[in-house]
Design a protein around this nucleic acid. Structure first.
Length: 255
DNA sequence: CTGGGGACGGGGCCC
DNA sequence: AGGGCCCCGTCCCCA
């Protein structure tokens, strides 16, 4: 499954966004453009978008700290522990349990890791580490998700939601054509379409590409056995889209 | 119709 | 915690 589809899409994905209709803070990030253009550049600091007070979670109203009392696992636990949380957080996938179960499970473990998440069994040396984990992952999961106010997408973590919201606000604007992008590096890639810069060269031929993904796809054309293979006829393709076309056309085997 | 290139989206990882 | 980058992917267009 493509990672882009880890979230539900409720709109026609084939439509490209109408950038001009989307509003939000803008930031111009390309030093190249800054140097090249006589146009006045106003680098605005990317600030949180002000959202209307509705019930869905957004980047600005997420219950980061403290959690609502009905969600907070804090009661009954020491609050003065330093935050020396253990290894990186990891989203669990087990079946949800109640908050009370969580508190019961968040009990003392071994010497190094004393607090355990009741949902994914991940352990932390401090209670605050456990709280941070639960806020960003497991509590979010048991509460379904963080929902975007601009669309109906849902995310299991705050960071993912924040990143997604940028796809609505599109804060990175090309000074040459006005096109807007969600992330600075997307804008940088776009600027190469203006400058003609192609920093990604094929080691097998003289071609160069502005986009690393396009080079990767191109490299497939040099391979005898390509990455995407038809299950029916074993024919291989350089791109998944070509494989899909092949399969949809009926392949060479009757279904 | 097929294969390939161009442009771009988005989640995850790393610093 | 946030930004940059990587990787994987899609869509559109054209030869």
């Amino acid at each position: 499954m493509p990672r882009s589809f880890l979230v539900k899409k409720h709109f026609n994905a084939s439509k490209k966004p109408n950038y001009s209709e989307l509003e939000g803070p803008t930031v111009f990030i390309s030093p190249y453009v800054l140097k090249a253009l006589p146009v006045p550049v106003i680098p605005e600091v990317l600030s949180p978008v002000s959202y209307s007070p509705i019930t869905v979670w957004t980047a600005s109203n997420l219950p980061l700290s403290p959690l609502p009392s009905d969600l907070s696992p804090i009661s009954g636990y020491p609050s003065s522990l330093s935050d020396t949380s253990s290894s990186k957080d990891h989203s669990g996938s087990e079946s949800p349990r109640s908050d009370e179960d969580d508190r019961t499970q968040s009990s003392k473990l071994s010497d190094g890791e004393k607090f355990q998440c009741g949902l994914c069994n991940k352990s932390y040396s401090t209670y605050s580490g456990l709280v941070k984990h639960k806020q960003l992952h497991c509590d979010a999961q048991t509460r379904k998700s963080f929902s975007c106010k601009y669309c109906e997408k849902e995310y299991v973590s705050l960071g993912a939601l924040k990143m997604h919201i940028r796809t609505h606000t599109l804060p990175c604007v090309c000074k040459m054509c006005g096109k807007a992008f969600s992330r600075p590096w997307l804008l940088q890639g776009h600027i190469r379409t203006h400058t003609g810069e192609k920093p990604f060269s094929c080691p097998h031929c003289s071609r160069a590409f502005a986009d690393r993904s396009n080079l990767r796809a191109h490299l497939q054309t040099h391979s005898d056995v390509k990455k995407y293979q038809c299950k029916n006829c074993s024919k291989t393709f350089s791109r998944m889209s070509l494989l899909h076309k092949h399969e949809e056309s009926g392949c060479c085997v009757a279904h």
